[in-house]
Design a protein around this nucleic acid. Structure first.
Length: 560
RNA sequence: CGGGAAAUAGUUCAACUUGGUAGAGCACUUGGCUUGGGACCAAGAAGUUGCAGGUUCAAAUCCUGUUUUCCCGACCA
């Protein structure tokens, strides 16, 4: 593409709308433009990047034997009613009505439609396996879009679905997809980890996330330094060897004026934090319950939800709290409480601990498990970096990750809900076993930019750069150089090297800055040295910067 | 959804406290000059100060409401 007379612009300054490095760079380099919060236009350069990402994914999916199709974005609401997800997605869905007042929604995901499509073919066990996918837009009314393309309300996603006769065969499909995913994220040059995760609103048996390492990542990853354990913090099990051995004492009330937090308790009573219990009150599917954890721990909502087999877990409001105790936040404890009490595993090993007395300004000391009734015990706290690896017992490290892809073993959740069955060889009707595999394509772009940039701009990997090479013509007045640049441009294009020819009437500095900002991997500078038959070849990462004979340029680029 | 901050030219900001002709940098236009890392000089174009009310002789400025954006949290396949 010749820059003169084409749609190309850059911004010299950061925009105040963007809160991330990648968001700012993508906007400044003219790749994307924000329309409203969480919705972006893809400008010509950005669109090229997006298409390159999608084509990498497309190739890997096709190689893995999946068939591409395209689903509508506008869906009738009753499809989601049948699977029971109208309520589980709730406010995250964009909903609308047609002229006859029928309910529609903009698809937040497409499991239901793929199941309906699969029904068309599946009658017998002979009709499987197969894998369908699409690359299309999803709509989710996010409460808080942020970080450029990382959390948007309309986004492009590749979603694939495997259909098999049973879990064992789904494993085969799943392994194939896992391999394809590694190929894809390797091609994008992402530093990523695969972690175990909660199955969430998708449901199913297993969920693995592909997390691009980045400090703006919204997920916390727990990674073992020694073995292959890696998990999203939401489901990382805590294996604590915490144990206390003392003589149990009867509990006693002590006055603790203005003591509200665990830190206050520790300071006021001058005790070890390991002798304190934090009492939290939650609304679990409408029932108000109390949860006890060791004072230095954080409660993990996902674990609590799973332990109680619930669908929603929220902190109780002040009104909800009043329904189970006269105590106030900051003075809560389990003694005398009628509501269900859930305790963390560690609390089971505590003796003579301190907790609130359900009376403002008072705490109990020397409380023991026999002093109240436990409804259920389990692992309900977040792992910390001080904990040991739950597998091998060695040191673990936390990292922040951007979820760029995930894979699920869905089991028969959707096929049973929507009646996707087949006849097996014994003429028995069975539900189809499914897997589902997503990649956020735009999110990948942001993750790549987060990982590949410097103070001058983006440093694209060759695989997804909007153009592989660019030619900077120093002066339009140098006829010889102009001729050489033009010839080089045509040669590069003939060799299928996407090339951006900067033939604008700008000063050289402007061109260099722009090419750095938009991150083109190879830069060919055509200037004074053409009289010696030379041009300059520089890579955006700075690893190569040398004079090359004009006729050797293509060879050199292909070499690198 | 809770808390906070903000909204002025394409963009980044100033003027608001103390009401009285809305300014600057970057970007843009024209001319000159310049051409290897975001040049310089001169002249210019560009604004219903988010929107709607109110107070006032007079509102970007004070008051009320509203919308939007950003931040912190909650939520988030």
């Amino acid at each position: 593409m010749r820059l003169k007379n084409s749609f190309f612009y850059t911004l010299r300054e950061d925009v105040k709308d963007e809160d991330s490095v990648s968001g700012n760079l993508l906007v400044r380099s003219g790749m994307i433009k924000k329309s409203v919060s969480g919705i972006y236009m893809f400008m010509p350069l950005g669109f090229r990047v997006k298409q390159k990402v999608e084509n990498i994914i497309r190739k890997e999916m096709n190689d893995a034997g999946a068939s591409e199709l395209l689903m509508p974005f506008l869906l009738p609401a009753d499809v989601f009613e049948a699977s029971g997800r109208l309520s589980s997605f709730g406010d995250d869905m964009f909903r609308l009505k047609d002229r006859y007042k029928r309910d529609y929604l903009l698809g937040p995901t497409h499991e239901e439609l793929f199941v309906i499509a699969a029904k068309e073919k599946i009658k017998s066990y002979r009709d499987m396996p197969f894998n369908l996918y699409q690359i299309g837009d999803k709509f989710r009314d996010e409460a808080r879009p942020r970080y450029g393309l990382i959390r948007t309300r309309e986004f492009t996603m590749k979603d694939a679905y495997s259909f098999d006769i049973d879990e064992k065969h789904t494993d085969i499909a799943y392994t194939k997809m896992t391999k394809a995913y590694h190929n894809i994220f390797d091609a994008l040059d992402l530093d990523y980890r695969v972690v175990k995760a909660d199955t969430g609103a998708m449901g199913g048996l297993l969920s693995e996330e592909y997390q691009a390492i980045s400090n703006i990542g919204e997920d916390t990853l727990v990674i073992c330094d020694n073995c292959d354990f890696s998990s999203n913090i939401e489901i990382a099990p805590v294996k604590s060897d915490f144990k206390q051995e003392k003589q149990e004492k009867p509990y006693a009330l002590v006055e603790t004026p203005n003591v509200k937090t665990i830190e206050d308790v520790v300071n006021f009573l001058n005790i070890d934090i390991n002798d304190t219990v934090k009492t939290l009150v939650y609304n679990v599917d409408g029932e108000i319950i109390m949860a006890l954890i060791k004072g230095d721990r954080e409660l993990n909502d996902t674990k609590l939800r799973k332990l109680l087999n619930a669908t929603s877990v929220e902190m109780a409001t002040e009104e909800e709290l009043k329904t189970i105790t006269t105590g106030t936040f900051g003075s809560l404890g389990p003694i005398g409480i009628e509501a269900k009490i859930i305790v963390d595993n560690e609390v089971l090993n505590m003796i003579n601990f301190v907790c609130g007395a359900n009376k403002e300004g008072y705490h109990y000391i020397d409380v023991n498990l026999s002093d109240f009734k436990i409804y259920k015990a389990g692992d309900i706290v977040n792992i910390t970096e001080n904990d040991k690896c739950p597998h091998c017992g060695r040191k673990i490290t936390f990292k922040k990750g951007i979820e760029v892809g995930n894979t699920f073993k869905l089991g028969t959740k959707y096929s049973e809900a929507l009646g996707l069955n087949y006849l097996d060889e014994n003429n028995k009707l069975k539900p189809v076993d499914m897997g589902c595999y997503g990649i956020g394509t735009a999110r990948c772009i942001s993750a790549v930019v987060e990982q590949h940039h410097d103070e001058n701009g983006i440093i694209w990997p060759v695989s997804i750069a909007p153009f592989t090479a660019c030619i900077v013509l120093i002066s339009n007045k140098d006829e010889k150089a102009k001729e050489v640049a033009e010839k080089l441009y045509q040669e590069l294009e003939e060799n299928n090297i996407d090339t951006l020819f900067d033939n604008r009437d700008e000063r050289p500095g402007v061109k260099f800055k722009d090419m750095d900002l938009i991150g083109i991997p190879y830069r060919i500078t055509v200037g004074k040295k053409v009289s010696d038959g030379l041009v300059e070849l520089k890579t955006r990462d700075g690893k190569v910067n040398k004079d090359v004979k004009i006729e050797d340029i293509i060879k050199e680029i292909k070499n690198i």
